[in-house]
C-alpha cells in the first residue's frame, strides 16, 4: 500500500483520509465513555470533545469524497473501508486501558484516556495551526475551525494530567502508568511516510517533524507540572499511517460499522 499517486487529487485525498481517520477513530474510542464518565460534568465534557472530533472527521471525509467523485460519500469512507485502509495513528485505536488483547473487556481507565487526548491534542494544535496555510483551501478552512477545538481539548486534557499526576499517590501512579504505556506509540508521529511527503511536496500538508519542538515543549512542561517522569519513547514503532494496525482497530471498526453494513443505505 506504499504506492502514492503523483496526481495531486490522490495526494490530497490520502492526506485528508489520514487526518479524518485520526479524528474518527479517536471519536469512536472516546465515545465509549458516553454515559459512564466518572462524573456527569466530565461525561458531558468528553462527549462534547467527541462530537468535535466527529465533526472534523465528517468535514475531512466530505472533502475527500468530493475529490474522489463517483459513489464516494462520507458514509462509504467511514463505514465501508476495512482496517488496512485506515491511516490513523495506532495510538488512537488502543483501548482506554492499560495493555490488553483485542477481545478483552474490562474497566476503562480515565487516566489512559486523558493521557492519550493530551498527547494527541498537543500534536494537533500546532498541526492545525500550520494547516491553516495549506495550499488546498478547503483543508485550510477545516484547519481554522478545528484549531479552536483542539486548543480546548489540549486545555482540558492538560488540566487533568496535572491534577491527577500531582494528586494522590494512587492517581499519580495511574497517570504515570498511562504515560509509560502510551509514550512509545508517539514515535509514529515523527516517522517518514510517502503519504505525508507527497502532501508536503504539493504544499497541502505539513512536515510533521517541524512541529516536534512545539510538541516536546508542551509534553515536557505539562509532565513536569504534573510531577510525572517522562518515559522514553522507544521500542517498536507503530505504522498505522501505513495501514499496519494493532489488533484493536478491527474490533473498534466492527462495532462502529456493523449497523451501516447490516442495513446499507438505511436512513432515518
Amino acid at each position: 500500500m506504499s504506492a502514492v499517486a503523483t496526481d495531486t487529487d490522490t495526494v490530497v485525498i490520502d492526506y485528508l483520509l489520514h487526518l479524518g481517520d485520526n479524528a474518527l477513530v479517536l471519536a469512536q474510542r472516546n465515545s465509549q465513555w458516553c454515559g459512564v464518565g466518572p462524573v456527569l460534568e466530565e461525561d458531558l465534557a468528553l462527549t462534547n470533545q467527541t462530537l468535535d472530533l466527529l465533526g472534523q472527521a465528517r468535514l475531512l471525509y466530505q472533502e475527500a469524497a468530493r475529490l474522489m467523485g463517483g459513489e464516494a460519500t462520507e458514509d462509504t469512507l467511514a463505514y465501508f473501508r476495512d482496517a488496512p485502509a485506515f491511516r490513523n495513528y495506532v495510538l488512537l485505536e488502543l483501548p482506554a486501558s492499560l495493555p490488553r488483547v483485542g477481545y478483552a473487556q474490562g474497566d476503562m481507565d480515565w487516566g489512559v484516556t486523558l493521557a492519550r487526548n493530551f498527547l494527541y491534542s498537543a500534536l494537533m494544535v500546532p498541526l492545525w495551526e500550520a494547516l491553516q496555510h495549506s495550499a488546498h483551501a478547503p483543508l485550510a478552512a477545516i484547519a481554522a475551525k478545528s484549531l479552536k477545538e483542539a486548543r480546548y481539548h489540549l486545555r482540558h486534557a492538560s488540566e487533568w494530567v496535572v491534577r491527577l499526576g500531582d494528586g494522590t499517590d494512587t492517581s499519580h501512579a495511574r497517570m504515570q502508568a498511562a504515560f509509560d504505556h502510551l509514550m512509545p506509540y508517539t514515535q509514529e508521529f515523527w516517522t517518514d511516510s510517502a503519504l505525508e511527503r507527497a502532501a508536503v511536496d504539493a504544499g497541502v500538508g505539513v512536515a510533521v517533524m517541524t512541529l516536534k519542538p512545539a510538541w516536546e515543549a508542551t509534553v515536557s512542561d505539562t509532565l513536569q507540572a504534573a510531577t510525572l517522569r517522562r518515559p522514553a519513547a522507544e521500542g517498536y514503532v507503530p505504522q498505522g499511517k501505513h495501514g499496519l494496525h494493532s489488533e484493536h482497530l478491527s474490533y473498534l471498526l466492527a462495532e462502529m460499522q456493523c449497523v451501516a453494513r447490516a442495513h446499507p443505505g438505511a436512513v432515518w
Binding site: E41, L44, A45, N48, H156, R163
Partner: peptide
Amino acid sequence: SLHAADAEHALQMARDIYTR
C-alpha cells in the same frame, strides 16, 4: 450549579454543560 475540583475546573465544566 455544578461540582468541580477548583475554580478553573468549574469554569471548564460550566463551558461544557451550560454553553453547549
